[in-house]
Design a protein around this nucleic acid. Structure first.
Lengths: 122, 122
DNA sequence: CCGGATCCAACTGGATACTG
DNA sequence: CAGTATCCAGTTGGATCCGG
C-alpha cells in the first residue's frame, strides 16, 4: 500500500465537514427539534431548552437561518411578533440524524458494553 | 414527520450527540483518513495534514484511542517506534460519513445551486 | 522521532442588564 | 417580546522549547 497525500480524500471530506459545521454544537439539533415540536416564538424556544441563553439562541438561529434550516417570519402586527419555522430542507436532515443516532447507540455498546441509559434530566 | 413529545426527541438525541462528540472538530476525520491511507507514524500523520500541530495531534489521537477508533502500538525497537493503526470499529463509521457527505453535497446545491424554491412571507 | 510543558492570544459562552 | 451590550471566566489552540 502506497502512502500519498490523500488530497482527494480530503477533498471528498469537504461536504462532510460542511454538514458537521451546520449541525455543530450542542444546540442546533435541539433547536430544530423544538421547532418541529411546534415551538415558534423566540422565548418559547428558549424556555423549551434548558441552559440555553438568549445570546446563544440568537446566534444559533441566525446560523440556522443562513443554512435555510429555519425560516424567520416577521408578522406585521403591533407589537411586531416573530416566528421561527422549520423549512422543507430541514426534513432532509432527518435520515442523517438517524444515521448518527444509530452509530451512537452501537458505539456506546462497543465502548461500554451497555445500552444507552436514561440519565438525569433537569 | 410523526408526532413526538419534545422530551422523547431530546432523549433520542443523546446518541446523536455522542456520535458528534466523537467525530467533532476539524481534525478527527482527517486523521482517520490519513490512517486509512496508510500513514502510521506520528510525524507522518502530522506532515500529512496541513496546519495540524503536534500538540493537537497528540490530543486528538488520545481521544480517538479512547473511542477505540485508533490503536496505538509501541514497537520495542531502538529507538522505540510507535504506530497508530485504524481499528475494525473505525470501519463502522464509514456509512455515517457517507451519509454526512451526501447531505453536505445536497445542502451545498440547495444553498448555492439554487433551484430556489419560492417561499414568500407577507 | 514522539510527544509533554509552558506561555500566551483569541475565541466561547455564562450572567446580568438593558432597549425598542 | 426579541433580542443586544457588557463584563468576565474558562477553554482552545498557536508558538516555542525541552526531554527521553
Amino acid at each position: 500500500m502506497e502512502k500519498h497525500t490523500h488530497k482527494d480524500c480530503i477533498q471528498a471530506l469537504k461536504p462532510v465537514q460542511d454538514t458537521l459545521d451546520v449541525i455543530n454544537g450542542k444546540w442546533k439539533l435541539q433547536i430544530i427539534i423544538s421547532l418541529n415540536a411546534g415551538n415558534k416564538r423566540f422565548t418559547e424556544i428558549e424556555r423549551s431548552i434548558p441552559k440555553l441563553t438568549s445570546k446563544v439562541l440568537a446566534k444559533e438561529l441566525k446560523e440556522l437561518e443562513q443554512n435555510n434550516l429555519v425560516e424567520r417570519v416577521v408578522k406585521d402586527t403591533y407589537p411586531v411578533s416573530i416566528e421561527y419555522l422549520p423549512t422543507e430542507h430541514t426534513k432532509t436532515l432527518f435520515p442523517v440524524v438517524e444515521s448518527l443516532k444509530h452509530w451512537g447507540e452501537n458505539h456506546r455498546k462497543h465502548i461500554f458494553g451497555a445500552p444507552t441509559k436514561v440519565e438525569k434530566n433537569e
